[in-house]
Nucleic acid binder design. Structure first.
Lengths: 208, 208
DNA sequence: TATGTAAAGTTTACAGTGTCAAGTTTGGGG
DNA sequence: CCCCAAACTTGACACTGTAAACTTTACATA
């Protein structure tokens, strides 16, 4: 009856995917507070207890939505990386642009992604290459890693800077967003901090 | 009956403060999900509808708790600033240490602070001086602001970097926290990015 | 083909939740 | 002394997550 892919076709087709889709819609229509098991079920056209057969309660649904959001996040960054110039610096800057764009366009989903426990870790490298969102960042950072330095240091610097800016921007810390301009005027100046990336780290003067 | 400061002493003493206190306790015992109007009321020893006379619903209580948390946050940073060495760089590094410490020690409260809309803004300067949390940051950043540069740029760089690191650390992105060490091993290396602070900003190569 | 079985979905029920509308107590000012 | 408004209680309602029992369906197997 309903068009199903081919995954599981007992009754609904694939209710699991439908529930995740419904959840994401609800999320960016009404924010995090309005994400509800019963509402997702209603939008998917099933009874309120149906999701229990696919997710471990509301927490399970949120985790599944976060995983799907993480996928979209990765695709956004892959796409963003290719729009900038082809210099290593251009790669990183375009990546950060994509990061901020995704956060602004999907604020509730963005928050959820970082509220459901870690998706994947630096410790676990992308399976073949660039499979994970962190893998995308890692590849962009690679040219800036000095010999003998742990890549994670550079990656964490970039990641922290763009994530902090995006999160604070979303929280309204930098003032009301103009809405007109596609980006906050502080974006480029803040990213300029990455100029000094990859140099030696003087832990000596910072240790005390 | 109960010991009251002297604010309002109709029945309870000062229920408002008691509810905020109860809320913070509940928050770091059971996390954000367990913060409930009825639970706060019960812990404060009043009926479930009593909070309605002091806060505008659950959102109002959360906002009040966030405001109180913001105060503690500011005090933590003021205190942290004075523990480091007296160099400008020491000021900033100690401040960032305090930032991360607060986030780790009060994760739910930290999240709440940045989930209830902006507390104060860069636009509104600290009343006389250093009154707000941003004022503390501003003072620490002041020595690094080159002549003719907008102070907000430097402040936003520092703020974004330490906030992003703290938030990602809390989210578990950097892997499970050891728990043993007082800080994550990446903290100092990441903060080393601030070495290059205050220099000219080459918007030219970053514009494209 | 007939049948049994397990998954998928429904229905019912229950404890908590926020919120509103009343009622009740209390304290202080006319 | 009395009255009134603020502080608090009580009761109710809609909504939520969750668990249990029940019904339907699709598929494997005999």
């Amino acid at each position: 009856m309903t068009e199903a892919k081919d995954k599981k076709s007992h009754h609904h087709g694939d209710l699991r995917a439908a529930l995740i889709r419904a959840g994401i819609e609800i999320l960016d229509e009404g924010g995090a507070e309005s994400l509800t098991l019963r509402r997702c079920a209603a939008r998917a056209g099933v009874s309120h207890a149906a999701p229990a057969h696919h997710f471990d309660g509301l927490a399970g649904l949120r985790a599944a939505i976060a995983a799907e959001g993480f996928d979209r996040f990765r695709n956004k960054m892959i796409q963003a990386r290719e729009t900038g110039d082809q210099s290593p610096k251009g790669h990183i800057l375009s990546l950060c642009r994509g990061y901020l764009d995704f956060a602004v366009e999907n604020p509730a989903l963005f928050d959820l992604i970082f509220s459901c426990g870690p998706m994947d870790r630096f410790e676990e490298p992308p399976s073949p290459g660039d499979a994970t969102a962190y893998g995308v960042l890692r590849a962009a950072c690679a040219p800036f890693v000095p010999e003998g330095t742990e890549p994670r240091v550079i990656e964490t610097q970039v990641w922290s800077l763009i994530h902090g800016f995006s999160h604070l921007f979303l929280a309204g810390t930098f003032g009301p967003s103009d809405g007109s301009a596609d980006h906050h005027p502080l974006f480029l100046p803040v990213m300029a901090l990455l100029r000094g990336i990859g140099r030696d780290i003087d832990t000596a003067s910072a240790a005390k």
